[in-house]
């Protein structure tokens, strides 16, 4: 039997000595989409940063396995090379670095780290343009400096473009719906759905159920006070939408 794509075992994470994630367990099998929902301050963003290996998010207990291998010993870019992708809630602006150059550089770095041949420029250009069209990203946006002056919707579409180009094994989407109007939400969700694949898993982190109407999860987990307090099917998200998180926060 093959490994689950992501396994979080008894994870404990601290920021500046303060415990945020406390004994969390989660298994995402290959090819599945799981959602993590939770109230503000539950530790949702902390979880995503800890998985990506951001400095300052100290893992003080437990383990994170990606495709059966622990990734705790890897730094941020090594985790990326191992197949971990994090779509940020607030994608960072990088002045002076053209969007497309960044993508190419990232792809080449990943290929190098994985010992693969780098993609031919012609092939790369063809693929970028095709994916960009699907996400309604203009050529102008591809040439502009990365995320600089992009609207909220443009930034998220651009994250979806990177997701499509980098084709990770495990994609974590952190509050991808925040700051999106319904049209942009649909475009981004379609972009994600196109990427669904038996060899790829998703963890969709969100506060609201809205996104899950478009990216339908196989399982929904509720994160409160640093651990998973409830799990269920897609219906759980709708229940939460009606009843709120209060019951879980009290627990």
């Amino acid at each position: 039997m093959s490994n689950p794509m992501l396994e979080v075992c008894d994870l404990a994470v601290e920021i500046g000595g303060k415990r945020i994630i406390n004994g969390m367990n989660l298994v995402v099998p290959a090819g599945e989409v799981h959602a993590i929902m939770g109230p503000n301050g539950a530790g949702k963003s902390t979880l995503s940063y800890a998985m990506a290996g951001r400095p300052g998010y100290d893992i003080v207990g437990g383990d994170i396995l990606l495709d059966g291998q622990s990734i705790l010993g890897l730094d941020v870019s090594e985790r990326a090379a191992a197949g971990m992708f994090l779509a940020l809630q607030y994608p960072v602006e990088i002045p002076g670095v053209a969007n497309m150059s960044f993508l190419k550089t990232a792809l080449e770095s990943l290929a190098k780290a994985r010992g693969q041949e780098k993609q031919a420029t012609v092939e790369f250009m063809r693929q970028v343009k095709a994916e960009a069209r699907a996400l309604q990203i203009s050529e102008d946006m591809l040439r502009r400096p990365l995320n600089v002056g992009f609207s909220g919707g443009e930034k998220k579409r651009n994250e979806a473009l990177q997701l499509a180009m980098l084709a990770p094994k495990m994609a974590v989407l952190d509050e991808t719906d925040s700051g999106l109007d319904i049209d942009a939400l649909k475009i981004v969700a379609e972009g994600v759905n196109r990427m669904r694949d038996p060899a790829r898993s998703f963890l969709v982190i969100t506060h609201y159920q809205r996104l899950l109407d478009y990216i339908v999860p196989d399982q929904v987990h509720v994160l409160a006070a640093g651990k998973i307090v409830a799990s269920g099917g897609a219906d759980l998200a709708r229940e939460l939408e009606e009843s709120g998180y209060a019951a879980y926060e009290a627990a």
């Binding site: 990506a52 951001r54 400095p55 730094d75 941020v76 870019s77 985790r79 990326a80 090379a81 992708f85 994090l86 940020l88 994608p91 960072v92 602006e93 990088i94 960044f102 550089t105 990232a106 792809l107 770095s109 990943l110 780290a113 990177q162 980098l166």
Partner: peptide, 15 residues
Amino acid sequence: SEDQLFYCQQRGLSE
């Protein structure tokens, strides 16, 4: 910026 550094590294670039 630490944010920019993290973002680049998350996309696979070495430090």
